[in-house]
Simulated scan of single mutants.
Amino acid sequence: ETVCRATAPLLPLTTEEIWRGLTGGRSVHLADYPAADQLPADDALVAAMDTVREVCSATSALRKARSLRNRLPLSTLTVVVADPAALEGFESIVADEVNVKAVRLLAADADEAAAYGVEQKLTVNARAAGPRLGKDVQQAIKGSKSGDWSVAEDGTVTAGGLALVEGEYTLETVAGAADDTTAVGMLPTGGFVALDTTVTDELAAEGLARDLVRAVQQARRDAGLEVSDRIRLVVGGSEALQAAARTHEQMVCEETLTTSYAVGPADADAPLVDLGAGEKATLSVSRA
């Protein structure tokens, strides 16, 4: 009942039904909102979901940087964090959100993680370190740029043989790339994601079919059809589009409520619909 009252502003109709079934009361919206100490708390779950959001945000940024549209499925996303066990069970959420076939969890200290070219970078703040180090600050800067720097077990940072204090330097983890088919992005709270950007023929065909679904849904709206209306659909286009439409016929029909489906060359007398990704199609949509 407490959770029902707490979520009522977000899910008014659903919580109303649950509330009446549980309590027999008139309305959940007439009940008092619960005090904070009455609500269940799960700090581990909150932390995990925060990381999931970071993973999805970083992956979406990689897609955008590589011009990989959201409807195009990709094969694998590798998530490298200090505690991968904390994210177990959330792989399907990430996969659905960023449209990948599989999500792998990898520990940051695993040997495989080093293959992604992620490394730490030290930058000396000359303005902050100069007053203390004097002319030796140049030696520290040269050490940071040449790789002559280290971090001791107690956290002490040394560059060019000179110890630096907090505020005199910035230590950050920067992303590299394992190869041309992998995009790497950092997570704000530590760790990184590695996205396999290889687009196989199968993935391209599925992405094209999803583009087709989007176009058909728009055509349904333009035709003034109701959400529940079943339709007849005729799709025309290039050989690549025809192949994708036939391969993913079941998905297209289920998503668009199509009961009669035909695929062939583009209709020369019908207007072309831009699907994106360089493909166009002719669509004939009518109520079944």
Rank of each mutant, 00 (worst) to 15 (best):
T259I: 05
R127M: 14
V216Q: 07
A194Q: 04
G160I: 05
A86T: 06
A126R: 13
Y169W: 10
K142F: 05
R20P: 09
T59N: 09
V263I: 12
L87G: 06
M186W: 02
V184Q: 11
A48W: 02
A268R: 12
R20L: 10
M186T: 07
A6W: 12
D83F: 03
A36N: 09
D111G: 08
A243V: 00
Y261R: 06
L275I: 09
A47Y: 14
T23Y: 15
V137F: 06
L74V: 08
V184S: 13
C253K: 12
A159H: 05
T78D: 05
L22N: 05
K280F: 01
E279H: 14
A36M: 11
A86F: 08
L208Q: 09
R69T: 14
V103L: 10
L283N: 10
G143C: 04
L22E: 13
S260M: 10
P12D: 12
G117Y: 08
G278Q: 07
T78Y: 01
T181R: 11
A219R: 04
A108L: 15
E279V: 08
A6M: 11
V184M: 13
G278S: 09
A108F: 12
V273C: 00
V165M: 11
S146C: 03
A204P: 02
V124R: 14
C56G: 07
H29M: 01
V193D: 00
F192A: 05
G176R: 03
E226W: 08
Y116L: 11
A219T: 00
V165K: 15
S284V: 08
G176A: 10
V46C: 09
V81R: 03
S60K: 14
A152Y: 00
R214L: 00
M251C: 00
L257P: 03
